[in-house]
């Protein structure tokens, strides 16, 4: 069984994975999550049975890690006193982040498959076939997830 050197995976996919995670998770957590994704992948790597579709495998790990981060985030406020929450109300993100009137919050509240599909489609500018390949679903399912995600987002934005 032949697997490419792990460094080749990092060189080929890390930058795009980071962009995916910026869309999927937000700029603050993307880099840490990328790090967790790569370490987790490196740990499991020699046990893979084949070297096919390594990219889809990396994206699966990234989504799982991102979900973990999301869970940690949502739990956080409840354990803090109210006063500590106030600074967080100010956007703490850098100037490169486009103005967000709740769009990205809504994206991150979409069901996981729709959220991943929407980010793949628009942030990474992929066609439905590629999205399907990376998510391990059919082209048609990818299209449905994108359009259902968009429908929900429009409803949110119109409110």
């Amino acid at each position: 069984m032949r697997l490419p050197p792990f460094q080749a995976l990092v060189d080929a996919h890390a930058v795009e994975l980071h962009r995916f995670l910026v869309g999927y998770l937000g700029p603050d957590d993307a880099e840490d999550c990328l790090q967790e994704t790569l370490i987790s992948a490196l740990r499991a790597y020699p046990r893979l049975n084949h070297g096919e579709n390594l990219r889809a495998w990396l994206y699966t790990i990234a989504r799982r890690k991102a979900t973990d981060v999301g869970r940690g985030r949502r739990r956080l406020p409840r354990t803090r006193p109210l006063a500590d929450l106030e600074p967080a109300a100010e956007p703490s993100v850098g100037p490169h982040v486009p103005a967000d009137d709740g769009l990205w919050t809504s994206v991150r509240l979409l069901p996981d498959k729709q959220r991943a599909a929407v980010v793949h489609r628009f942030v990474l500018d992929l066609d439905y076939r590629s999205i399907g390949e990376r998510m391990g679903i059919s082209e048609e399912a990818a299209r449905q997830n994108v359009s259902e995600g968009l429908r929900r987002l429009r409803k949110e934005m119109d409110r």
């Binding site: 869309g23 994206v107 968009l150």
Partner: peptide, 30 residues
């Protein structure tokens, strides 16, 4: 809406050197 979504990945690419250094440091530690 689609145009705004397409801008969602904007921002600096990760610092490749820092990222790789952190990765191999952890890899070695583990």
């Amino acid at each position: 809406l689609e145009r705004r979504l397409a801008r969602g990945g904007d921002g600096p690419a990760p610092d490749a050197d820092r990222l790789s250094a952190a990765l191999r440091q952890r890899a070695a530690a583990e």
